[in-house]
């Protein structure tokens, strides 16, 4: 389980703030300007109307650029420090190509149930997204998609395959 260190807390606050910017005006005012409703607010009938997904990730991706997938430990969505340079490379590329957009695909190994892995893959993609935002990439340029355990990179049933399957992949769109 993630230890809520200061750094991660900062990332999460950033992610939440960014997310709340995507909410339409008109949602009820909530504590500290975040998008978090308290149980009292829910009971009082607090309503969200988040915007529907943007059209990032639809159409043909740019195929002549490939980035190293970010690897994860078993059942973890934490970006380990050796993986950070891979994310820095993507951030640099996006800064050089300011019109490009990005989809981060989160994947899991086959262990655990498929429904749980769907959420874990999303958390992996979101962890990488938060890191890119921290590196200065506009949140509106990034979408995430979790494939859970449904699209393994390596078809096998041992750790050598599993470690390749626990990953976040980058797909760039013009």
């Amino acid at each position: 389980m993630l230890k809520p260190t200061f750094k991660i807390a900062t990332l999460v606050v950033l992610a939440i703030l960014t997310a709340s910017c995507r909410l339409r005006p008109g949602k009820p005012k909530t504590a500290a300007g975040t998008d978090v409703l308290t149980p009292e607010e829910i009971a009082a009938g607090g309503v969200y109307t988040p915007e529907e997904r943007s059209d990032i990730g639809i159409g043909q991706p740019i195929r002549d650029v490939q980035f190293e997938p970010v690897r994860f430990r078993f059942d973890s969505a934490k970006v380990d420090s050796p993986e950070l340079t891979k994310i820095q490379t993507v951030a640099d590329y996006l800064k050089r190509n300011p019109s490009y957009t990005l989809v981060i695909e989160g994947h899991c190994d086959e262990r655990g149930t498929a429904a749980y892995n769907m959420a874990l893959g999303e958390r992996r993609a979101q962890a990488v997204r938060a890191e890119l935002i921290r590196l200065g990439i506009d949140a509106a340029r990034i979408q995430t998609v979790s494939y859970g355990e449904e699209r393994p990179a390596s078809l096998g049933h041992s750790e050598e395959h599993w470690r390749l399957n626990r990953r976040a992949e980058f797909v760039v769109y013009p």
């Binding site: 992610a15 997310a19 995507r22 409703l37 607090g46 969200y48 109307t49 529907e52 979101q126 995430t144």
Partner: peptide, 25 residues
């Protein structure tokens, strides 16, 4: 997970308008 993390919500009628009540944080 539109806030950046999977959370539970309840969609109330009319369902198509995306009115969400958040249950977890």
């Amino acid at each position: 997970s539109f806030t950046g993390n999977p959370e539970l919500y309840v969609l109330r009628p009319p369902l198509r308008d995306g009115r969400l009540f958040r249950l977890t944080q």
